[in-house]
C-alpha cells in the first residue's frame, strides 16, 4: 500500500512538474482556437420534452455500475430534496447524472432538467489538471485516468458546471468521478450513451455536434412559439458537446447564463493567479516526496535496488 502510493507520488511529481510549466503555456496560447474535433459527437437535450421519469438516471446507474441509490428511481420525492443552502441535487460520485425539477414563474407545469458533464470542447477540468489525468477523445467524450489522478480537486474548482465529484471511498486512493459519455462501453463503438437509449421522450438526441446544432436551429425555426431562440452550449465556454433547448429563459431552468463564450482556459489563468497556492505548493510537495524517496533509496547508494523494491511493493 505504502509502496504503491509512493510510486504514484513519484510518477505524479515528474509529470506534474513538467505539466505545470509546459502545458500551461501551450494551452494558454491555444485559447479560443479549438472548435472541437470535427468528428465529435454530442447530445442535444430538449427540455420542452422532459417529463421527469428518471429513466436516464436508472440507466446510468446500471451502465456505470454505480452504488444502490438511497431511494428507488421512480420516487418523485427526490425532486423536493435540497442540499446545503437550498441547492438542488447535483451529480456526484454515486450518480453521474441527476434530474431536477424547476418551477418557472408563470408556467402551468413543472420543468425537468437532466444534469451531467457537458463534455466541453475545451474542458476546464482538463486544462486545470496538472497531472494530465483528463483527455478529450476524438469522439467528443471528456474522460479521465483514475490511475493518474492524485485527488487535488483542481478540476472541481475549474469546471464551470460544478461536475467533477470527489470520491471519498478510500482516503489512500482519492479519485474524481463524473460522467464519461459511456465512452468505454458505448461511445467508443459509435453507440449512444445509456441515458439516451433509455429516454422515452426523445429528450436526448445523439449525433455529430455539428448536425445537432443544425437540428436545434431547425426546431427553433419550426416552432418559435415553443422555444427560446438560443442553443445553450453552442458557444458557452467555447462550446460544449451536450447542448440544450428550452421553452423558458435558461436561467429559470437553473443554467448559468453568465459564463460567456470564452473557454475557461483564460479564466483558469485568472483562477490560478488568485489561488497561486495550488500551483506553488503541489510541485513543492511532490519534490519533497521525491527527495524523501530518493534519500531512502540513496541510503545504500543503489538505484537498481530501489526500483526493484518499487516493483515488488
Amino acid at each position: 500500500m505504502k509502496g504503491i502510493s509512493r510510486r504514484r507520488f513519484l510518477a505524479a511529481s515528474v509529470i506534474g512538474g513538467a505539466a505545470t510549466t509546459l502545458t500551461m503555456s501551450k494551452k494558454a496560447m491555444g485559447a479560443g482556437t479549438f472548435e472541437g474535433y470535427p468528428e465529435g459527437m454530442g447530445v442535444l437535450v430538449d427540455l420542452t420534452r422532459c417529463v421527469g421519469c428518471r429513466s436516464c438516471e436508472a440507466a446510468c446507474n446500471k451502465e456505470q455500475k454505480l452504488p444502490e441509490p438511497a431511494m428507488p428511481f421512480d420516487d418523485p420525492s427526490v425532486f423536493d430534496q435540497t442540499g446545503h443552502g437550498g441547492q438542488k441535487r447535483r451529480p456526484d460520485e454515486n450518480a453521474y447524472t441527476v434530474v431536477n425539477r424547476y418551477d418557472p414563474p408563470g408556467a402551468n407545469h413543472p420543468l425537468f432538467r437532466k444534469l451531467q458533464c457537458n463534455h466541453c470542447n475545451e474542458p476546464a477540468c482538463l486544462t486545470s489538471c496538472f497531472v494530465s489525468a483528463y483527455t478529450k477523445t476524438r469522439e467528443g467524450a471528456v474522460v479521465y485516468n483514475e490511475k493518474v489522478c492524485v485527488g487535488c480537486r483542481n478540476c472541481m474548482i475549474a469546471c464551470p458546471f460544478q461536475i467533477p465529484a470527489y470520491s471519498y471511498s478510500s482516503a489512500f486512493d482519492p479519485v474524481i468521478k463524473k460522467c464519461i459519455f459511456c465512452y468505454d462501453t458505448r461511445l467508443k463503438y459509435g453507440k449512444p450513451p445509456a441515458c439516451v437509449e433509455a429516454c422515452p421522450q426523445g429528450v436526448l438526441t445523439f449525433g455529430h455536434r455539428k448536425e445537432l446544432i443544425k437540428i436545434g436551429q431547425d426546431r427553433i425555426k419550426a416552432r418559435p412559439d415553443r422555444y427560446v431562440d438560443h442553443i445553450y452550449g453552442e458557444t458557452e465556454v467555447g462550446g460544449t458537446g451536450w447542448m440544450y433547448l428550452s421553452g423558458v429563459p435558461f436561467e429559470q431552468a437553473g443554467f448559468d447564463t453568465t459564463l460567456g463564450k470564452e473557454p475557461i482556459i483564460s479564466n483558469v489563468k485568472e483562477f490560478l493567479s488568485t489561488v497561486p497556492m495550488v500551483l506553488a505548493i503541489w510541485p513543492a510537495l511532490f519534490t519533497g516526496f521525491h527527495l524523501l524517496a530518493r534519500k531512502k533509496g540513496h541510503a545504500d547508494e543503489d538505484h537498481s535496488h530501489e526500483s526493484q523494491e518499487d516493483e515488488k511493493s
Binding site: 428507488p72 428511481f73 454515486n94
Partner: peptide, 19 residues
C-alpha cells in the same frame, strides 16, 4: 430491477442520500 423499485427497492429507504 432497473428502477430499484418493488422487490428491488433499497433497504435503507429512509437513509439520507449524499447531497
Amino acid at each position: 430491477a432497473l428502477f430499484r423499485a418493488g422487490a428491488y427497492a433499497p433497504e435503507s429507504g429512509a437513509a439520507a442520500g449524499h447531497h
